[in-house]
Nucleic acid binder design. Sequence first.
DNA 1: GCGACGCATTGACAGTCGTCGATATATACG
DNA 2: CGTATATATCGACGACTGTCAATGCGTCGC
Lengths: 125, 125
Amino acid sequence: MTKRTARVIVEVPDRTRGERCSPGPRPLVDLDALERASADFELLAHPVRLAILAILVRRGGEVCVCDLEGALPVKQPTVSHHLRLLREAGWIDTVRKGVWAYYFVRPDVVAPVRDRVRRVVEGLR
Amino acid sequence: MTKRTARVIVEVPDRTRGERCSPGPRPLVDLDALERASADFELLAHPVRLAILAILVRRGGEVCVCDLEGALPVKQPTVSHHLRLLREAGWIDTVRKGVWAYYFVRPDVVAPVRDRVRRVVEGLR
DNA sequence: GCGACGCATTGACAGTCGTCGATATATACG
DNA sequence: CGTATATATCGACGACTGTCAATGCGTCGC
């Protein structure tokens, strides 16, 4: 989703040329965790998507698109767009019942997301 | 930071025209929390920034830019750019010591961030 | 002073994102 | 069938993001 061009390197260099300007051990960064986490954060980084997720979780079940549409400050194609992003990420899924489409969260997918995010955020201390 | 054009409305409409296609109570969404949280997530949604934060937190103190520069897969102006974003958000700050600039996290700012993110993410259950 | 160095800023570029009108698709109802 | 309704997709637009070379700015050592 982002324009990530390169990967994050694991070590802080020991700056053999000249003395190091920071003392202390060289920090290690879990590369793959960062990459996956940032992808999660990208999806969370929009209020409409957050609202969709909040509504779906609140209802604890299927929610009709038309209800979402009415609750959000964007037009129908835009709602559909954000629903697609969440669906393509696997976070939510949909069933059609007649004319209506009902969306719901997939807890089996969102739970690992929650774990990844929690791990990164708790690391900020 | 995002292209938010409008605000998130608080209620799911009761669809007076026609019957509602979803039953259940109308969910309420904490608008301001969503807005602030999505701003937090935007800042977290890049692996370089995540890596910077991880390194700063790990070191538990000031880290020279040149160390960060060596640890990240982007050139110096790009590092500076991401440092600026984090600094402008108040998450980190800097002291100059001679030629070098040392960055460090501001726990007083990051702690509320952690709380907001935690609140949103724990809400995903 | 001068040159070297570390970092910040600028400016430009390509790529991506969010939005919405228009349109397509699909279902339901006469 | 035709029409209405719900959702998805398309296409275009403007705005923003990430990146880096070039340049500026401040500090150090000489």
